[in-house]
């Protein structure tokens, strides 16, 4: 279960940040003056039947892992989580699972919003304002419960 390559749950999207929605910082930042460093999303304790989907691992490998959990692992339900860019893939995995089970599996999707933190490192540190340069932004996440309906 422990994925050595990506301790974080899901990858961050690589597309540029469009809306700094965090209310902490109202300063308009010139993008040239700062280096942006993204922190990992908040890591929550996970059960054995939680699958966090990322964009780096091979799709088939992730699908196989879910199948193994459902069939060999003896779990009646698993939870597939995807964040940002990985939402697509999470949905894809869930649908594939359902299709391959000939309708035995059911899906229940939930969406949520995850707050992410970015550190802004001023390139010219002596000029920076006294406030620490962090900003929050929100990103969408999906949590799909894949389960065998109870008879």
């Amino acid at each position: 279960m422990n994925d050595g390559r990506a301790p974080g749950a899901a990858v961050l999207p690589q597309n540029p940040l469009t809306s700094p929605s965090g209310g902490l910082q109202s300063v308009e930042m010139d993008p040239v003056e700062y280096t942006l460093r993204k922190r990992l999303p908040r890591k929550l304790p996970k059960r054995r039947n939680d699958v966090y989907v990322n964009m780096k691992t091979d799709f088939r490998a992730q699908l196989a892992r879910c199948q193994k959990l459902l069939e060999g692992g003896g779990h009646r339900e698993i939870c597939v989580h995807g964040l940002g860019l990985a939402i697509n893939r999470a949905i894809n995995i869930a649908l594939q699972l359902q299709a391959s089970s000939q309708g035995a599996l059911q899906l229940a999707a939930n969406t949520s919003t995850v707050e992410l933190v970015d550190d802004l490192e001023p390139d010219d540190p002596d000029e920076a304002p006294g406030e620490p340069m962090t900003r929050t932004r929100n990103n969408s996440a999906i949590h799909i419960k894949v389960y065998y309906p109870s008879p």
Binding site: P125, D126, E127, A128, P129, G130, P132
Partner: peptide, 18 residues
């Protein structure tokens, strides 16, 4: 030198917070 990144005068560090 500022070219190499933050120096001793970096504001956050100078305040003692970092």
């Amino acid at each position: 030198s500022k070219d190499t990144g933050p120096t001793f005068a970096a504001v956050l560090a100078l305040s003692g917070r970092r």
